[in-house]
Amino acid sequence: MVDVGTGLLGIGAGLAVGLAGLATGWAQKEIGSSAIGAIAENEALFGKGLVMLVIPETIVLFGFAIAFLLMGKM
């Protein structure tokens, strides 16, 4: 059995990645559908669409960083 503090750290780490992932997905949903719409009209916009689409990914990376720092304390 681990003690409560470690457990809470684990939960915190999980939440950090999980919620950040959700937020990223939420942001990407909007951008992705608009990007596909734009690409359907003009295929040359693929590159720009991809760039816009992947910008929110940084959010989940921040979540990963926090989770990682928390795990270091476990």
């Binding site: 990914e57 940084t58 990376l61 921040f62 990963f64 960083a65």
Partner: peptide, 12 residues
């Protein structure tokens, strides 16, 4: 700083 953090994806 955000750009540099973005390279964490390589590890992640």
């Amino acid at each position: 700083v955000g750009n540099m953090a973005s390279y964490m994806r390589l590890a992640a």
